[in-house]
Design a protein around this nucleic acid. Structure first.
Length: 226
DNA sequence: CCCCAGGCGTCCA
DNA sequence: TGGACGCATGGG
């Protein structure tokens, strides 16, 4: 399985090239984008980030000072803008109260992850995205595409939850943040194009040649990975 | 018109 | 513990 995963990574990298994630010019911008992109098209997030940048508010310090209503209007294009304004402001204030990002970076990864997960609006994917892309910790990010692609390829069962899927990847890959960075970005890339929920285009997917129809007993014979 | 997007919190069985 | 639902804009 380790070889199969490596083959998938190599195939994706050959097909799409390096994705250069996260697309942000600062850690602050990365973290802001991570919150805004929850269940939201990245194009919409870019509009919201542009709005913040135009106001000189594309930083956690600036956001912490904005009124929630003002912030909501600035990020409106990213959707769920009332919720996100509240949660983004809370996140910004929490980071500052904790002494800023450099201070937070002193925490070991498990403690930092727990700290992030306590914040309203930060779930496992957002927390792990921040850990990987802002703090460069070797944490594999799971998202809807990853779950879809992973179950499709029988890497794990269809009902596998976030933690179990994450365990699967970390068990079969070396703990390398650069690898996790690129792999997750590539999974999102291939997912967007070929693995949409109701419009999958598996036959043209670069991973198709690696896909094997589950044989008798195979789909439930992954006890070693659970 | 429908589908969907780089989720999360809440509620309820 | 897990499944439904609300949150919302904007592009295809």
């Amino acid at each position: 399985m380790t070889e199969e995963l490596q083959a998938a990574y190599d195939t994706l990298l050959a097909a799409f090239g390096s994705q250069h994630w996260w697309p942000a010019e600062s850690a602050d911008e990365m973290i802001i984008g991570a919150l805004l992109t929850q269940n939201t098209n990245w194009k919409n997030v870019e509009k919201a980030l542009a709005g913040l940048r135009r106001q000189g508010s594309l930083s956690l310090a600036a956001i912490a000072e904005l009124e929630t209503e003002t912030l909501a209007e600035l990020i409106r294009p990213s959707g769920y803008f009332r919720q996100k304004a509240q949660r983004l402001r809370l996140l910004a204030r929490s980071v500052l109260d904790a002494g800023g990002l450099p201070k937070l970076a002193e925490k070991p990864t498990p403690e930092l992850r727990r700290w992030l997960l306590k914040l309203k609006g930060i779930g496992p994917e957002t927390a792990d995205s921040i850990l990987l892309y802002a703090f460069e910790r070797p944490v594999f990010v799971i998202d809807a595409y990853t779950l879809r692609i992973g179950s499709r390829h029988d890497w794990f069962a269809p009902a596998t939850d976030y933690a179990a899927a994450q365990t699967f990847f970390t068990r079969h890959l070396p703990g390398d943040s650069a690898l996790y960075n690129e792999f997750h970005a590539l999974l999102v890339r291939v997912g967007k194009e070929f693995c949409r929920p109701k419009k999958p285009d598996c036959a043209r997917c670069p991973l198709y040649s690696l896909y094997r129809e589950p044989g008798p007993g195979r789909s439930t014979s992954r006890k070693s990975d659970v």
